[in-house]
Computed example of a mutant assay.
Amino acid sequence: MFTIRYAADRGKADFGWLQSRHTFSFASYYDPAQMGFSALRVINDDSVAPGAGFDTHGHKDMEILSLVLSGSIAHKDSAGNTEVLPAGEFQLMSAGRGIYHSEFNASAQQELRFLQIWIQPNQQGGEPAYQQKDFGQREGLTLILSPDGRDGSLTLRQDALLYQLILPAAQQLTYSSLVGRKQYIHLISGELNLAGNLLQPGDGIKISGETALTLTANAGVKALLFDLP
């Protein structure tokens, strides 16, 4: 079964310094039909003005992933991590029993755009953790998150996988999954055809009851593919 979440239907927030689009219910945006999908709880598409950002605030028992699409993030947290995350890199912060952090646009001139993604962990508490990596722009599927850190991926506290999908125009691949798993695809750029469902940038699609997905790029595609419990 396929259910498209169109970009135009997402929640919106406008704080002047922050423009955000919410795939699922978040902060003041609430839709009881959009409370997440399996362990995937948040996908926010955030644009942050130069020099602005999120002041220090806390989280616990959440896996928080950031992917910079343009610009760079200046990250600080209460575990002592002070990092700059440039475009193309992934950052995973496991909040564990509790962590405080801030995320600012590292540039005084350039806008920052990034995806903020929350995944609910399958364990409570534990030490907070921080991971950051550039996985490059290899064509096909690149494993970004896994529960065991396989193939150089970041280690996620959940029985879930995340892949970066890059397909040139007119290229096709098939993704196979185990019976009972669910998938979610978020399209960053290009045009993707999945079983006759056309996705445009910002669109997502909920998938259940499928064990083989044939993905076709009508135009060069960059997307995130989540394989969820």
Results as ranks from 00 to 15, higher is better:
F2C: 05
T3I: 12
I4H: 07
Y6F: 08
A8I: 07
A8F: 09
D9Q: 14
R10Q: 08
G11H: 05
K12G: 04
D14K: 10
L18H: 06
T23H: 00
F24C: 01
S25K: 07
S28G: 12
Y29V: 05
P32R: 06
Q34I: 00
M35L: 15
F37R: 00
F37D: 00
F37N: 00
F37V: 00
A39V: 09
L40Q: 03
R41Y: 03
V42L: 11
D45L: 03
D46R: 05
A49P: 02
G51E: 07
F54Q: 03
D55F: 08
T56F: 07
H57L: 15
H59R: 09
I64A: 07
V68F: 03
V68Y: 00
I73C: 05
K76P: 00
D77T: 11
A79M: 14
E83L: 13
A87Y: 01
A87L: 02
L92S: 09
M93D: 06
M93L: 13
A95T: 03
A95K: 00
R97K: 12
R97T: 08
R97H: 12
Y100C: 05
Y100F: 08
H101C: 11
H101W: 11
S102P: 06
S102Q: 08
F104C: 03
N105P: 04
A106D: 13
A108H: 09
L112H: 06
F114H: 04
L115M: 11
Q116P: 03
I117R: 05
W118V: 01
Q120Y: 05
P121C: 07
Q123R: 08
G126K: 10
E127G: 05
A129W: 01
Y130W: 10
Q131I: 04
Q131S: 07
Q132M: 15
Q132H: 14
Q132N: 13
Q132W: 15
K133T: 13
D134C: 08
D134F: 11
D134P: 01
D134Q: 09
F135S: 13
L141V: 13
L141P: 05
T142F: 04
L143R: 13
I144R: 00
L145N: 02
L145M: 08
L145R: 02
S146E: 06
D148T: 10
R150F: 04
S153I: 08
L154Y: 02
Q158N: 10
A160R: 01
L162G: 11
L165C: 11
L165N: 03
L165K: 04
L167N: 04
L167D: 04
L167Y: 05
P168G: 07
P168A: 12
Q171R: 14
Q171S: 15
L173F: 07
T174W: 12
Y175S: 09
Y175T: 06
S176M: 09
S177G: 14
S177Q: 15
L178D: 15
V179T: 14
V179D: 14
G180C: 12
K182E: 10
Y184A: 05
Y184G: 01
I188P: 02
S189N: 13
E191V: 15
A195L: 11
A195F: 10
N197A: 13
N197Y: 07
L198S: 14
L199Q: 02
Q200V: 08
D203Y: 08
G204H: 02
G204S: 07
K206W: 01
K206Q: 14
K206G: 01
S208L: 10
T211I: 13
A212G: 05
A212I: 06
L213M: 13
T214N: 12
A217F: 05
A219L: 10
L224K: 02
L225A: 08
L228R: 01
